[in-house]
Write a protein that binds this DNA or RNA. Structure first.
Length: 269
DNA sequence: ACCTAAACCTGGGCGC
DNA sequence: TGCGCCCAGGTTTAGG
């Protein structure tokens, strides 16, 4: 999924239905999806209620009462569904939290990369979150500019969660196109004007996607199973060999840092 | 410090 | 319809 807009959209939906719900039972069929171990996870959450849902980077954080937390990472193909237990089955479901109200939180994960993790207290939670850089939607322009003082390639740096949190492959591609910056450039080579353009482009693209309910390019779904809309408004992501909407040049595709990278040689310099 | 490739897995789309 | 190949919103680890 799931980059900041997708995870944040889901967080807001969860925040509407989950607080006050009591976990009655956990079922699963893939043990590695419950961390640190299925038994520890289940013992940690059973009988507790959910009081709040937070987000840090691409990680959802469920606050439990009277104490404890669990996190959910959707990785590439994770979906969360909120359903009455009588609802028809969903495909690819591997973990289900059953609530006393008769509702279920279903975790569908086709590729089995995603996971739930129980965290027993604040100290451990902080430990788990300590390596994340500032959230992209909160970082100041000045701090952003400082973070770019690096020889790393700009696109790889944007996607490095320890430098800046929340950006993934879609929004890195789209923001660089908006800011007219080639993804292969080293971060430190960006002029102050370019840094400002990039910072603004990132804010713009994140905000636009969040308003559209995120990008359901392949797997991402809302809590009720519906799709987001940003995939219909990609600037350059996925547009291999199409013509650039800004300058008409043919859009290139190459692997950069092991990730598919789309850019326009005509207007990204 | 930074880069690449591979690993973790499965499904969907495309060409033949 | 089927098969093979390529690709996939992420992260981690091994090796150069």
């Amino acid at each position: 999924m799931p980059e900041l807009p997708e995870v944040e959209y889901l967080r807001r939906e969860l925040e509407i239905v989950l607080p006050g719900e009591v976990i009655k039972k956990v079922s699963y069929d893939v043990g590695k999806m419950l961390r640190p171990q299925p038994k520890l996870f289940i013992d940690g959450v059973i009988g507790k209620s959910i009081s709040q849902i937070r987000r840090r980077a691409k990680l959802l954080i469920f606050v439990l009462a009277p104490q404890g937390f669990f996190t959910v990472h959707l990785r590439l193909s994770g979906r969360l569904f909120w359903r009455p237990s009588t609802a028809p089955a969903d495909k690819f479901v591997h973990v289900v939290l059953h609530f006393a109200s008769g509702y279920e939180l279903r975790f569908a994960e086709a590729r089995k990369f995603g996971y739930f993790e129980y965290i027993k207290n604040e100290i451990d939670l902080e430990k788990r979150l300590k390596d994340y850089g500032p959230e992209i939607d909160l970082v100041s322009w000045k701090n952003f500019s400082q973070i770019l003082e690096s020889r790393q390639r700009i696109k790889s740096l944007l996607m490095d969660q320890s430098k800046i949190a929340g950006i993934g492959n879609i929004y890195a591609n789209d923001a660089l196109w908006l800011a007219r910056i080639a993804p292969q450039r080293s971060a430190e080579s960006l002029s102050p004007k370019e840094r400002q353009r990039l910072w603004k482009a990132l804010q713009q693209v994140i905000e636009e996607s969040l308003k559209k309910g995120g990008a359901s390019d392949q797997w991402y779904r809302h809590l009720d199973g519906s799709k987001g809309n940003y995939q219909n408004f990609f600037k350059i992501y996925g547009q291999r060999d199409e013509s650039c909407p800004r300058c008409g040049e043919k859009i290139k595709y190459e692997s950069l840092g092991g990730r598919g990278t789309f850019w326009c040689p005509g207007c990204q310099n």
